[in-house]
């Protein structure tokens, strides 16, 4: 690499970081959406009457079965077709969020099943409604059990955010391509920098989740199948 290449590389870092910020925004949005919908789908699968549960299973099947890239196109161009004005960013959050909700629902469903029917029965026996039981007994346990498998999902969706570039979101991957297109010699170094960004974020995210797990650890609870992915 020449001095000019090095200079270009350094010049490019702020631009890359601003792109990375977009990835993080997508990540936040999609995780939140995936979490909310994922829990809902898992609860429906476990607790609701059969036709509704079947619908939830179908939902999961669809969003796990369709490739992310195809989902992105379906949501972005599909909604456009129906005259719904949607920005590439929003489309990315929705598409990746719904996809993640399918995977997250699987994690939560496994965790809810691991908590077991007896906990539900005990809660009902003191007079709680099913919703109260879910809120105060089932979910607090299921969410704790979900943290280890959930960190896999976190790492996976973090990386998926770069797919948003395909529908025109200017995030870190796209910015790296801009820089590469401007100076071909930077093809390898610029993507190394991007790779480092993601390695760092994955590390930081998993560290934070580990801290969260320790923070909410309950004596004797982890023995009950924590860490298994259902």
């Amino acid at each position: 690499m020449t001095a000019v290449d090095w200079q270009n590389l350094v010049q490019g870092v702020p631009s890359l970081l601003s792109g990375l910020l977009v990835n993080l925004e997508i990540l936040l949005g999609l995780i939140a959406l995936g979490f909310a919908v994922g829990i809902l789908v898992a609860l429906v699968q476990v607790y609701s009457p059969r036709p509704l549960a079947a619908l939830a299973v179908g939902y999961e099947w669809f969003f796990r079965g369709v490739p992310e890239m195809v989902l992105l196109m379906l949501i972005y161009f599909g909604l456009r077709q129906f005259k719904v004005r949607i920005t590439p960013f929003t489309a990315a959050v929705i598409a990746l969020g719904l996809r993640s909700s399918a995977y997250q629902s699987q994690i939560f469903r496994g965790a809810i099943q691991a908590v077991g029917r007896r906990q539900m029965m005990a809660a009902l026996s003191v007079g709680m409604t099913r919703l109260q039981a879910i809120r105060h007994v089932i979910l607090p346990q299921a969410l704790r059990l979900s943290i280890p498998p959930w960190s896999n999902e976190f790492s996976s969706v973090l990386k998926d955010t770069t797919l948003a570039s395909a529908i025109g979101v200017i995030e870190v991957f796209k910015k790296a391509r801009f820089i590469m297109g401007r100076n071909y010699a930077l093809a390898l170094p610029i993507f190394l920098v991007v790779a480092l960004f993601f390695l760092f974020l994955t590390y930081a995210g998993n560290w934070a989740l580990g801290a969260l797990e320790r923070r909410y650890r309950i004596p004797g609870f982890e023995a009950k199948g924590a860490g298994e992915r259902f």
Binding site: N8, Q11, G12, P14, S15, S18, K175, R177, F178, I179, G181, R182, N183
Partner: peptide, 14 residues
């Protein structure tokens, strides 16, 4: 379609 210099591209600063 960026980049396709000199018709269109992004400077290192973006």
């Amino acid at each position: 379609d960026i980049p396709w210099a000199p018709f269109e591209w992004a400077s290192p600063e973006g």
